[in-house]
Design a protein around this nucleic acid. Structure first.
Lengths: 246, 246
DNA sequence: ACCGTTAGCAAACACCGTTAACGAATGCGT
DNA sequence: ACGCATTCGTTAACGGTGTTTGCTAACGGT
């Protein structure tokens, strides 16, 4: 990658481009719920709206890029926490999923934007080039991909998961997952994919509902419930529950 | 309630009011995702936008009423299926939750509107008059309320649920639920509230994610997964799994 | 038949995303 | 150092939105 001598113009351009995103994000979290406005962003920056089109093709493109950045930020937040975690498999699983929830709960507006927006299609799932559904797929797969990679790493490292008996697997579900596994490139048995998918949906759905404010009416603080659910879920992975530290 | 002699005007007014809602709903499901437009509704009705203000205070008020109607529709859909179900407790639980999911999956746009919109506050949970959070609460509680009532009925009818040992309950969660139980009026032990809340969140979160299209990238057909989850959840209620009929 | 209530309309306001034409500043090549 | 081309920001405008205001015409109860 030849870093083509960053000219002064390029630096300034990148700077304002970043500033646009910053202002957009601030307005996003400020006007909780209302969708962000291109004119509003320009106003706060002391510019006019059409100027922003020098940096982004459209408002849709801007939000798409923001979503991309947010997913990246989530991944980095998880990596940061994982770096501090030890080598113990169970602990790493707990740390990763808690890092994800922490980010989602701390940035509900950003999470909502990601959740609502249409994702980049199944492209995110590695080199799958299915012509049928190339686009308009949710961004939730980006998160799933994040943890699938983590899961595969853990699987390669050691296989602690005691898979359920072949007879106890829900066949029709496993078949769909097997088809998905064939699309992407992941080398684990079908039973493991099922166990992972089940665990992931159980945890992700709670996190999503919490971040979207759909559990407030039940729990003033959702964390205890989430920890209870985490406790139950990690058990299905054959992993012992690890309480939170602080 | 003295049904004040429905004058001709009142009837016509109610008719157009209903027509507005119908057109609004049609446009809602047609323009999947995009929020419905007051002017668009008026256009399709051969009217001008300001005319609609004779019937609804604002667009927000219209959507609120639509959400209210949808929740009512869901309740009726469940009741209709429940009428056909027998007296068996396990079967009734399965029928009710499947009726709910069927509606949500069959009407994703309507479900999305409900999910996004802010609900009527904790008022829906009976005579709770908490000044602190009188408003801006999610509409998910309406659904929860639906099934809580059903759960209480089932509990009054017979208590088949084998509650977990007092020691195994997540105390901090149960405390919050106990506080909630004190707000509303429901006469069941704390352990039962926990079991119900846990089961409800597990099922509702899957239904919500599916209706919002966040599971499409994993499952072309989510039903098998949902049935697998239902299988696991009813087990926590001490109820045997009842396969679907058709 | 009267007269008040009511339903619908047109105009207008303030906002939005987006496009087009234009001017100024900047950086690059010679 | 000059000239030119690219870039960045502007203003003006188009079509869209929710909402308010004032008006007219029709309708209905007395």
């Amino acid at each position: 990658m030849t870093t083509t001598t960053e000219s002064r113009r390029d630096r300034q351009r990148a700077a304002t481009e970043a500033e646009i995103k910053e202002v957009a994000r601030r307005q996003l979290v400020a006007s909780e719920g209302a969708e962000l406005s291109l004119r509003g962003i320009a106003r706060e920056m002391g510019m006019t709206a059409p100027a922003l089109y020098r940096y982004f093709e459209s408002l849709e493109a801007l939000t798409q890029e923001m979503c991309h950045d947010f997913v990246h930020e989530v991944a980095e937040a998880i990596d940061a926490r994982m770096a501090g975690a030890g080598r113990d498999l169970a602990t790493r699983v707990h740390v990763a999923i808690r890092a994800f929830r922490d980010w989602a709960v701390a940035n509900p507006a950003e999470f909502g934007l990601i959740f609502r927006s249409k994702g980049p299609g199944p492209v995110a799932f590695a080199g799958a080039e299915q012509a049928e559904w190339t686009d308009d797929c949710s961004h939730s797969q980006s998160f799933a991909r994040l943890f699938l990679d983590l899961f595969v790493d853990l699987w390669a490292e050691q296989q602690p998961i005691e898979l359920p008996d072949e007879e106890h697997l829900p066949r029709d579900v496993v078949e769909q997952l097997a088809a998905l596994r064939r699309l992407i490139t992941v080398d684990v048995p079908d039973g493991a994919v099922w166990v992972f998918a089940h665990a992931w949906v159980r945890l992700y759905s709670v996190i999503a509902l919490e971040a979207l404010g759909q559990l407030e009416f039940m729990f003033a603080d959702v964390e205890p419930y989430f920890e209870a659910e985490l406790h139950a879920v990690v058990h299905t992975l054959g992993i012992d529950y690890v309480p939170r530290e602080p």
